[in-house]
Design a protein around this nucleic acid. Sequence first.
DNA 1: AAGCTATATTGACAAGCGTCGATTCAGTAA
DNA 2: TTACTGAATCGACGCTTGTCAATATAGCTT
Lengths: 110, 110
Amino acid sequence: MSMQRCCPPAQIPQMDLGTEAELFKALGDPHRLTILATLDRAKHEVCVCDFTEALPLNQPAVSHHLRILREVGLIAGERRGTWVYYRLAPDARDRIRNALTSVFRRKVAA
Amino acid sequence: MSMQRCCPPAQIPQMDLGTEAELFKALGDPHRLTILATLDRAKHEVCVCDFTEALPLNQPAVSHHLRILREVGLIAGERRGTWVYYRLAPDARDRIRNALTSVFRRKVAA
DNA sequence: AAGCTATATTGACAAGCGTCGATTCAGTAA
DNA sequence: TTACTGAATCGACGCTTGTCAATATAGCTT
């Protein structure tokens, strides 16, 4: 006897989720998540030197992670004198929310 | 004259966000996002063979991505006869939501 | 049992990522 | 200008990741 088909043929959406993947990739490192959590909780901007002190990384590594977050638009840095201060990008949560709703149409986060 | 301090010393939360990073890392690939989007939209389970057809990947690569999503608990697979059917884990959205609220206390997704 | 099909696993490879040391750039203070 | 400090960039090094080819496993059909 012949085998039945495996299933009703599924719809595989042919969308390009490359941008969304880039965003999640930037979230895929614990130190970068710590940076984001810090900026989220900080009432003011945070100096790079604070991250260099608190994270178990040397200064170039911190700069590297800040750059990755900056390049995907999740944070923004501003130099004032000798120091550079970072803050969460105003639309950071929107960007993540939009990426999520591109993948999951249904409600994800509260 | 001496330079002023850079800023009010920032609070760097000392939490371990390794688990959350693992979750986002699993989301950091466009093909895996396509798989998740498909499962989210599918009314029924989706056969592996459908992914193998639709994605520009060969069968082992598809299996590889399914395994990564399975190991972080975002999807679940069940073999029925020759075929294996995947579906979104019931708590997939909760897991993502919780990871996000570990980082961003404030509301992220709608 | 043998033969077939669908999926998973393995091994190998190039490419990418995270980290560090060294250097360079930007800005301040003398 | 020179000297100093904070941050960014560069170069190199392992480790991980995504992909494919080959093989193995699970289950069906004779």
